[in-house]
Amino acid sequence: MFPIIEKKVLNSQVTLYRFAAPFIAKKVQPGQFVMLRIDEKGERIPLTVADFDREAGSITLIVQAVGFTTKKLATMEVGDAVADLVGPLGCPTEFGTPKKAIVIGGGVGCAIAYPQAKALAAMGVDTTVIAGFRNRDIVILEEEMRAVANHYYVTTDDGSYGEKGLVTDVLNRLCEKDTYDLVIAIGPIMMMKFVAKATESFGIRTIVSLNPIMIDGTGMCGGCRVKVGGEVKFACVDGPDFDGHAVDFDELARRGAFYRVEEAHACRLEEKQHG
């Protein structure tokens, strides 16, 4: 069992959980994920690790309550424990040796972009963060991002906070003025697709982090297969980071929607139980 040792509500949908997971905390690196299962009857879901503390033996997950398991998790409190946390899985991010990097987080994607920005800053890289949200109410991790990044930009779709517009608007503006040699984009599939499109024209190496459907997370089921540069890759073992210019985002979006009907059904059931 893996107990929750800290819980912090970041916005109406997104919650930070710190779990005691000493084996994982000892090994995990930015870009890696864990599989979480709440209880004996639970499903296994992949969640990228947002932060870790090797000495305290803890890992942090920042989770948006969108599906059955994430909603159930949101009802758990400090002292409650999940049955399983498996990891660290996937390959750590290969940062290379950039000089100037832009890290882009879209919505809850900021949770995964944060350890990337933190790692780049620790490597002495000039790091710019662009964080995009639908509106002011759901802005997360601004303070944390500002603390590690050299420059921080925030956009909202409705202009209620920061700049009105999309992360790509800021990205295009920055890249026209200055030279960057790495972009990391984490967020909704369509955001990553358009970031990759933009950086391709500037010729900037771009890493995206994918979160497709998985069961085991160790290469066994093949449910997470994704086409990258025309080749089939398993996101769980070959990724979850991939070259943004080579990923087939449209296929990824199609495959990700497969269980939406069943999931909506499960969520309704849950509302029944709790409502």
Binding site: I38, K41, G42, E43, R44, F68, T69, K72, I215, F258, Y259, E262, E263, A266
Partner: peptide, 8 residues
């Protein structure tokens, strides 16, 4: 039905 994992 009492298990959470979906199947088609």
């Amino acid at each position: 039905p009492e298990y959470d994992t979906p199947i088609k």
